[in-house]
Nucleic acid binder design. Structure first.
Lengths: 193, 193
DNA sequence: TAATTTGCCTAATTCGATTAGGCAAATGCA
DNA sequence: TGCATTTGCCTAATCGAATTAGGCAAATTA
């Protein structure tokens, strides 16, 4: 991190450090300027490794999406039904609580090109895999996938924004009960309005 | 908007214009500089009316929260049960679709001081009011409140990020079926795990 | 060791946010 | 109506972030 000779910058290293920086100070504040400061180099030096600030953010987002997909897929492996549902949900939430900056990055608006190379597909596939343990035909399955995605992302988002802190009952309690309720709902999904 | 004499700046007018600007170019891009451009004044001139950029954003957020609470409370008035649930949800989603920038503003992280004077309390009260039509005792009621908040904010967030666009089935279909499923879930909420 | 590549630097530009201080237009008061 | 005061927007200036161009030295290759 000093200034003797070369700092050993790499796109890879910048992105990893950027992700850590995001967890420490927030994704918004994970700027090229701050990142350069951490490496003990001038901001301009980053531009041989990342195209610009947006490129840096995009790469951090892609990293976060991969990591999240890895964690979730590990957690879900070998499980089915409610077990798989809670494993998925907990892995997702844990990642967000442990890596708030990365998680924010994972929600960064990607341009179509970047989105195509992202782990978004894996996420979609995994969510759908959860429903294998429940008996849901299309189009209900898609509706259910969207519900799950909404609940997870919504809950974790609100929790991260401080929505449930310092209030009774505990957030963990709500989370458990909500997962239980979702399990019941998926097993008795109404197929007519 | 010209430069003859005075522009008639007001905190009120800046915030309203800021909200419109946010809907047009995104909340992130709703900056003092851009706002000043729209009014045909120098950026520095805004600083007699708002403390700084953060203050401007906070005020836009507070406006959005009020508007959203107004829309929802109007929609919910005189309804109960599933009727109230869908009215609430649709008002919420409509606001987000019609005013994406304001909706993003409503999620802006407020400092405790601002949060206290916000319509956040109204939102909480209204969500809880929905559940009056369902028979849910504490602490289940709180868990259900959190679920509803998560689903609405999560779904609308994903939809706004383009999560459900260009895919089958239609987002509107999923939304309707999800609301139906939530109604069923609330009526049969599992009180034991 | 010489040649080449590569990495980080300096220099310079542009733009947004912010503060200080000034002048003229609007307003209040005799 | 005329003067004093307030108020609103301006100019000027600073600071910091993002970005580009071009240079020199260190690392790599031959």
């Amino acid at each position: 991190m000093a200034q003797a000779g070369r700092a050993g910058l790499t796109t890879e290293r910048l992105v990893r450090a950027g992700a850590e920086l995001a967890d420490e100070v927030g994704f918004e504040q994970a700027t090229p300027a701050e990142l350069a400061r951490r490496f003990g180099v001038r901001t301009a030096s980053l531009y041989s490794h990342v195209r610009n600030a947006h490129d840096l953010r995009t790469r951090i987002a892609l990293l976060a999406l991969e990591e999240l997909a890895d964690q979730v897929s590990t957690a879900v492996a070998g499980r089915a039904g409610k077990d798989a549902l809670t494993a998925f949900a907990n892995a997702y939430r844990d990642y967000a609580l442990t890596h708030p900056g990365r998680f924010a990055a994972a929600r960064y608006r990607l341009d179509p090109e970047a989105a195509a190379t992202s782990a978004g597909v894996r996420h979609a596939r995994m969510t759908r895999a959860i429903l294998r343990g429940y008996d849901l035909a299309e189009p209900h399955q898609t509706h259910a996938v969207r519900l799950l995605g909404s609940v997870f992302s919504g809950y974790v988002g609100l929790e991260g924004a401080g929505g449930f802190s310092h209030s009774v009952p505990d957030s963990q309690e709500s989370w458990s009960e909500i997962l239980n309720a979702l399990d019941v709902l998926l097993r008795t999904w109404p197929t007519t309005s």
